[in-house]
Design a protein around this nucleic acid. Sequence first.
DNA 1: TTCCGGCGATAACAAAAGTTAATTTCCTAT
DNA 2: ATAGGAAATTAACTTTTGTTATCGCCGGAA
Lengths: 197, 197
Amino acid sequence: MSVSISSLQQLLFELSGVLPADSSPLFAVTRQVKLHANETYIREGDQDRRLAYIEKGIMRAYTLKQNGDEATLFLRWEKQFIASHDTIIHRKPSRFVYRALEDVTLLEIDYDVLEAVMKVYPQFEPLRNFFLMRMLSESLAMMEAFVTLSPEERYRNLLAERFDVVNRVPDKYIASMLGITPVSLSRIRKRMLEKGK
Amino acid sequence: MSVSISSLQQLLFELSGVLPADSSPLFAVTRQVKLHANETYIREGDQDRRLAYIEKGIMRAYTLKQNGDEATLFLRWEKQFIASHDTIIHRKPSRFVYRALEDVTLLEIDYDVLEAVMKVYPQFEPLRNFFLMRMLSESLAMMEAFVTLSPEERYRNLLAERFDVVNRVPDKYIASMLGITPVSLSRIRKRMLEKGK
DNA sequence: TTCCGGCGATAACAAAAGTTAATTTCCTAT
DNA sequence: ATAGGAAATTAACTTTTGTTATCGCCGGAA
C-alpha cells in the first residue's frame, strides 16, 4: 500500500472517523503517477481536472508573462496537494504549467470522479474541505507576505520556514515566486552575507 | 425576505437543486448585521468564527506590520463572502481586523453552526464548497498578479476590472493592497495621466 | 575528457519605489 | 458654514529593483 494512501487514510480518519478499511471507494479511483525531473504534469491548455497529493518530490506551477518570461506561482512538495485550479474552479483550460522539479511521485484523482464519489459517499466530504482550506490558507499566507513584507523579508521568511525546499530549488524559481528577478535575489543574498546575516 | 437570502437561495438551487422552501434549516441560523462606515466587524484577537455574505457596502481586512503601519490584505464588496480565516481555518485568534469602509449590511453565520447544519443537511454542502472555491480563486488571482505584474500593471488591472470599487475606496488602502506605498501610487497615477492614458 | 549550455554572481546604468516632510485638497464633524 | 483633520500630491533624497551584458562555474551530453 502506498505511503500516500496510508497518510490520507489517517487524515480521513482524523477528520471524519472513517476507518481505513472503509475508504476503498475513494482510493479505488486514485492512481499513482511517477514523473521524472523536468517532466510536465499539466500543460497550458489542458482541460483535465487533476488533483494530486505529493508523495515525493517538488512540483512547480508557472505561467508565461506577456514578455515571455516564466512566472512561478508556487511550489508544492511532500504531503501537499497540487491542483489544476483553472480547470477545477472555473472549468477553463489551464493557463498554468505544472512541472516536476525533481523525480516526483503523486497520488492522483480526477476531480469529476471525486465529485461523483462524494455524492455517493458523503462521509468523505471533510477531506475535500480539508484540501480546499489548506490551499486557501497557503494562498492567503502568500498574499499576506506580499502586502506586509519587502522582497528581502519574504526571502528571509522563506529561508526560515522552508530552508530545505529553498535548497532543493534553483534560485531563479525562488526569485520569481517572491515577485522579483534573479538578479535582485542575488543582490539580496549578497546584502545578507555582508551585514553579518 | 432579505436580498441576501434570496440570492443565496438562488445560488443553492443552482448548485444542488435545493428549493428555496427547503433551505430554512440553513437560513434559520443566519442573521443580518448592519455596520456603520468605519465600524469594526472583527477585532484582532477575536476568536469568533464568523462567515458573512456582503449584501451592501465594502469591507476591508487589514493587519499591522512590524513598523505599526496597516497592511490591507483585501477588500470585499457586494455579493462576496468575507471570513475570519485565522479562526475558521486554524482556530486561532484573528490576526486581522475586518472593518466596514461604508455602511454595510451582512448576512452572517457562525462557522461552527454552519458545520453542525451541514452534518444534518448534507444537501447544503455544495454551498460551502462554492464559497471556499470562490475565496481560493480570488486569492490565487491576487497571487498571480503579484508574480506576473508590476505595481503599475496591477493598478491598471484593478481599474479595468473594478473601477467602481477603486472609486469608492481611499487610495491609501488600494496602494497597500497592491503592495506599495500611497506616495508610490500617487506617482503611478501621475505617470498614467502624463503618458496620455 | 571536452564542449556546451544553463545558472548564479557581478557590474553599470536606468527606472521605480521607499522615506520624510511640506503643501494642497477634500471631507467631515461641529 | 466653518474649522480641523485626514488624504492625496509633490518634492528631494535614498534605497532598491529592473535591465542588459559579461564572466565564471558546474554538470550533463557527446
